[in-house]
Design a protein around this nucleic acid. Structure first.
Lengths: 338, 338
DNA sequence: CTGTTAGCGCATTCAT
DNA sequence: ATGAATGCGCTAACAG
């Protein structure tokens, strides 16, 4: 039912030029007489010509695709980044290819291999588990940008916020609201993908307390795994210790949600009895009861920046490290102590 | 720094066979002498040969990719489906290509065009806005599977739950709990020949009421757009009408979250003053205050089924419609009326 | 069973 | 500025 695929040759004929001329105007390359260019363009639309991407790739070596390796479709923060990447690439000629590493190094490695096979022109890692050495090796062969993860030797290629600073500010906020006993729900610091982020958030919390002349109470620091349920467990642990506290600072919103539920189960009111804050400003944070005070990372903007950066890299432009600023989102989950 | 790309020819030489023999063993096609096959395989691993996907595509016309058009990275339900698709494709030779239609027909159309240009071998739509006619036209040219949306003339290609039934059961549940005035937050149900999921949910609600001998009060049905905020607005509208109701059934969890917040703002307790239920069982539904009663769709399984189905289609196997069963998840957001 | 050959559609020298 | 020719790496007849 479908008419034969129309090729560059068809339009060359219709425009009374050679195929190379057609190729030229399509590739926007060197000068072509205005009239001929016009004729070509006309033929293109007239015949609804669609270049064969395989032929293009074969002949040029470029795929016009950029590979994006994420860790978890469904994680609001990461999804924001994906949206940003999509937006950033929207009006370019590049298409993104996505893969989900699922927090698993082997799967990630496999995804990477697939991308290499598919000859992606550029690579964006959103988070990631691969060892630094591997990343450096990859960066050596393919333009690469990292979002939400920082690797010292690839600092130029990283896009992220200052987690230490953001955490410091959040803790300061709590202190200013009169809180003195602030619990912190963190996560394994050696869990690679989140290591830097979480560790820095912990460090910011510690520093803010220190600067306020408050001695850190190790018992008020409990460890979760970034998922909701662990936030609930963390609260249980906190409660069991019978160590008084008036506020809980969870290293991410998901754990804050879990904490919120555990408090509810215990009949502990938020923020009346205990204040609660998170980190990430997930979509639902604004719709929890009460709305959660948290830190917003400009994920969409970061994603878009990643897209722009990778295109720059592929164009051979030098890239510079980009640190975005975060924003403290004050909502109603914190009580001001008198 | 990179040694010349090694091609099929290199391994042909090293294995002392012709390139076509190499191609044969790689393509797993017709018989090849065991020893030669072995030699080829050995050479392949020895040289770490990677077929050029463009050349393959150009010569064979196949891209070994399947395009997935979703509507919203970040929506838990859809993301579950994506995960399932990823799982289902994992050990096949196909790679998924993703695009986000963002509930916008134009963007979706654009994504589709991109996929066509990239010569995807199959297409999976997760939800979608495209008119039925377009979908049928597409299905005519490319194997296609639809998840989370039902189109009558493409019934065989659809994977979904029985939304009518699930909604009916949810409404029955509310009725059994003693509720008589049940408000429903729905969404636009456009496209004449297409009964959207939302429309079916509405229908199930209506039918359950009818079967219980209750006259539908049109004022208790308000329309949102599936996003949180619209759920909040819906509640405001409901409240303004001063029509009494004891329960709210939102067509999806996101709107239920919004509704929850609006109720909180008005000082209306859940479930003490009004019960609230949603649909989809999003991740956070279990962590809202109080935990939300909702309907679970087996999204991951559905995604996997989609992957299997599309591969079957591409193999020319006949496909049969698949209806998954949903599950009513009873949590604490519903009060039993005496 | 296996080698030879002819394209697949386009980018790119190389001439003109 | 433009046309002709070459080849990208591989698959698929086509012969043996």
């Amino acid at each position: 039912m479908s008419s034969r695929k129309i090729t560059i040759e068809d339009i060359a004929q219709k425009a009374n030029v050679s195929i190379s001329t057609v190729s030229r105007v399509l590739r926007k390359s060197s000068g072509v007489a205005a009239d001929k260019r016009e004729a070509v363009l006309q033929a293109v639309t007239a015949l609804d010509y669609r270049p064969n991407i395989f032929a293009q790739g074969l002949a040029s070596g470029q795929s016009m695709t950029i590979g994006v390796i994420t860790q978890n479709f469904g994680s609001p923060f990461y999804d924001g980044i994906l949206q940003g990447i999509l937006l950033g690439l929207e009006k370019s000629d590049y298409s993104p290819l996505f893969a989900d590493g699922r927090w698993n190094e082997n799967i990630e490695q496999h995804a990477l291999q697939t991308f290499v096979d598919r000859r992606v022109d550029g690579l964006i890692f959103v988070g990631g588990q691969l060892p630094e050495a591997d990343m450096v090796a990859v960066a050596h062969k393919t333009p690469l940008i990292l979002v939400g993860r920082t690797i010292a030797s690839l600092a130029e290629n990283c896009i992220h916020i200052d987690n230490f600073q953001a955490s410091y500010e959040m803790t300061r906020y709590l202190l200013e609201m009169g809180h003195r006993h602030i619990a912190h729900i963190t996560a394994q610091m050696h869990y690679q993908n989140t290591v830097s982020d979480v560790a820095q958030r912990y460090a910011g919390y510690v520093q803010a307390l220190a600067d306020a002349g408050i001695t850190l109470d190790p018992q008020l620091v409990v460890e979760g795994n970034m998922l909701q349920q662990s936030g609930a467990l963390a609260v249980e642990m906190l409660l069991m210790q019978k160590r008084p506290f008036t506020a809980i600072f969870a290293a991410n919103d998901q754990m804050a949600f879990g904490a919120r539920l555990a408090l509810y189960r215990r009949g502990i009111r938020v923020p009346d009895d205990v204040s609660l804050v998170g980190f990430d400003d997930e979509m639902t944070a604004a719709y929890t009861i009460p709305p959660l005070t948290t830190v917003r990372q400009p994920s969409v903007e970061m994603g878009r920046a990643a897209a722009v950066a990778i295109m720059g890299l592929m164009d051979g432009q030098p890239v510079s490290q980009q640190i975005f600023s975060s924003q403290l989102i004050v909502r109603e989950s914190v009580l001001r102590l008198r």
